[in-house]
């Protein structure tokens, strides 16, 4: 009887240590996700990641010309400020489990909630990634760029990670997404925020207004800026 009690006690102790360890690791995961802008319910934050100095929430992308290589080893240059539509940058890797769903989704027919949006998959360069594995994963209709420079410039904190950039090279939103549903939510929220600059500070609203005017063809010094609307007949 005593032996049974001792064994039970040891088992209970081991279980307590196990549960304690699991709780501790769970707390650590939540802490790190929170630091990256992902809340406990899986939703993601928009605006600038906390791993990058936050400025206005509607800021110029760290680079607007993306240079790298494609899966065939060719040299590639892509533009984010081409003046046409948005670009969704999807930072993925061949080894991350969370990326698998996005490789699958981008490989099929998919619709994004933001209109006129081109998707570009960005992976690390050939020294850090497996081109052969990427060839198995890469969708045929979505461009894939391998570049350590792009990865470093955008300070990608984790994979999968996404940025929505408008046609002038301004970041509309960014964040991590654990699922396709979360990504669509991030895009909807980014588009809504970009259309409503109230959440921005003064500098952010100034940049937002400049961008909107530029996209409408109104540049600094344009006479229309100095017209008094009350003078119109």
């Amino acid at each position: 009887m005593t032996a049974v009690v001792i064994i039970e006690g040891v088992v209970i102790l081991l279980l307590a240590i196990l549960v304690g360890g699991l709780l501790k690791s769970h707390a650590e995961i939540l802490r790190q996700l929170n630091a990256l802008g992902v809340s406990e319910d899986g939703s993601v934050s928009v605006g600038t990641s906390q791993t990058r100095p936050k400025t206005t929430g509607f800021e110029k992308a760290p680079m607007t010309t993306l240079s790298g290589v494609d899966l065939a080893g060719g040299s590639v240059s892509m533009s984010l400020d081409h003046g046409r539509g948005n670009t969704l940058l999807a930072f993925l890797s061949s080894g991350c489990l969370s990326c698998e769903t996005f490789w699958d989704e981008f490989g099929g027919e998919f619709d994004l909630p933001t209109p006129d949006t081109r998707t570009v998959i960005v992976t690390k360069g050939v020294n850090s990634e497996s081109p052969s594995k990427l060839r198995e994963l890469a969708p045929s209709k979505v461009p894939l760029l391998m570049s350590d420079d792009v990865w470093d410039s955008f300070r990608v904190p984790m994979t999968p990670y996404f940025l929505l950039v408008d046609g002038t090279g301004m970041v509309m939103g960014e964040g991590a997404a654990a699922s396709w549903r979360h990504l669509l939510g991030l895009l909807r929220q980014s588009a809504a925020d970009a259309a409503n600059p109230l959440h921005l500070d003064t500098e952010g609203r100034r940049q937002f207004t400049d961008t909107q005017l530029r996209s409408a063809g109104v540049h600094p010094g344009d006479p229309s800026l100095y017209e008094n609307p009350l003078d119109e007949k």
Binding site: T65, A72, G73, G74, S77, M78, S79, D81
Partner: peptide, 25 residues
């Protein structure tokens, strides 16, 4: 402005443009 270099061909890519040089060789 970025530059493409591949297979013995080099070219400057103007801002806002895109380009590629295949590794066909």
């Amino acid at each position: 402005m970025s530059r493409l270099d591949q297979s013995g061909i080099g070219v400057e890519v103007p801002p806002g443009w895109e380009g590629s040089i295949s590794a066909g060789g």
